[in-house]
Simulated assay, not measured.
Amino acid sequence: MQACQNIAYKVKDGLVQPEEIDEHLIEQELQTNCTEFPYPDLLIRISGERRVSNFLLWQLAYTELCFVESLWPDFREADVIEALHSFQHRQRCYGRRDL
């Protein structure tokens, strides 16, 4: 939402034309753009929830999801290892359908 608002202000101020809005411009405005790894490879969701709750929706497009039943206080190293093991055995396609 903040990225869209920033772009809207740029359009309003004449810095960007509406037809210039594209995926690259949106990515530039994301708060995670300043990090070394703005797109996570793996998201581990604890507590048995099966949703991402609007968390990094754009950045999670090609992220592998792992759902764990453990609650946060009970989440241990073994849970991380199991999630990483599962991740290592996945065939990632990044949106391709020809696999």
Results as ranks from 00 to 15, higher is better:
2 Q>W: 04
2 Q>D: 08
5 Q>T: 07
5 Q>R: 14
6 N>E: 07
6 N>D: 08
7 I>H: 01
7 I>M: 03
7 I>R: 00
7 I>D: 00
8 A>D: 01
8 A>I: 01
8 A>V: 02
9 Y>S: 08
10 K>G: 03
10 K>D: 09
11 V>C: 11
14 G>E: 11
14 G>S: 11
15 L>V: 07
16 V>A: 14
16 V>F: 11
16 V>R: 11
17 Q>P: 01
17 Q>L: 13
17 Q>K: 15
17 Q>S: 13
17 Q>G: 06
18 P>N: 12
18 P>K: 14
18 P>V: 06
18 P>R: 10
18 P>F: 09
19 E>G: 04
19 E>W: 13
19 E>M: 08
20 E>M: 10
20 E>S: 10
21 I>P: 00
21 I>T: 02
22 D>R: 05
22 D>S: 13
23 E>T: 06
24 H>A: 15
24 H>R: 15
25 L>F: 05
26 I>G: 04
27 E>N: 03
27 E>M: 02
27 E>S: 03
28 Q>G: 00
29 E>V: 00
29 E>S: 04
30 L>H: 02
30 L>W: 01
30 L>E: 01
30 L>F: 01
31 Q>K: 11
31 Q>I: 04
32 T>S: 03
33 N>I: 07
34 C>I: 12
35 T>W: 13
37 F>E: 08
38 P>R: 03
39 Y>I: 00
41 D>M: 06
41 D>E: 14
44 I>Y: 05
44 I>R: 09
44 I>F: 10
45 R>T: 09
45 R>K: 11
46 I>F: 05
47 S>N: 12
47 S>Q: 13
47 S>Y: 09
48 G>P: 02
49 E>Q: 08
50 R>S: 11
50 R>M: 12
51 R>L: 12
51 R>W: 10
53 S>A: 14
53 S>E: 10
53 S>Q: 09
55 F>C: 09
56 L>S: 04
56 L>K: 02
57 L>Q: 08
57 L>P: 00
57 L>G: 01
57 L>S: 07
58 W>N: 01
59 Q>P: 00
59 Q>F: 00
61 A>Q: 10
61 A>I: 03
62 Y>D: 11
62 Y>M: 05
63 T>R: 07
63 T>H: 04
63 T>F: 03
64 E>Y: 02
64 E>K: 01
65 L>F: 07
66 C>G: 05
67 F>L: 06
67 F>D: 04
68 V>W: 08
69 E>M: 09
69 E>N: 14
70 S>K: 13
70 S>G: 06
70 S>Y: 07
71 L>P: 02
72 W>M: 08
72 W>Y: 15
73 P>G: 11
73 P>F: 15
74 D>M: 13
74 D>S: 15
74 D>W: 12
75 F>M: 13
75 F>P: 03
75 F>D: 10
75 F>R: 14
76 R>K: 15
76 R>L: 08
76 R>T: 12
79 D>N: 14
79 D>K: 08
79 D>A: 11
80 V>M: 15
80 V>I: 15
83 A>H: 03
83 A>G: 04
83 A>M: 06
84 L>M: 12
86 S>V: 00
87 F>R: 03
87 F>S: 04
88 Q>K: 06
88 Q>R: 05
90 R>W: 03
90 R>L: 04
90 R>G: 02
91 Q>Y: 06
91 Q>K: 10
92 R>W: 08
93 C>G: 03
94 Y>H: 13
94 Y>G: 04
94 Y>F: 12
96 R>D: 14
97 R>W: 02
97 R>H: 07
98 D>K: 09
98 D>V: 01
99 L>C: 10
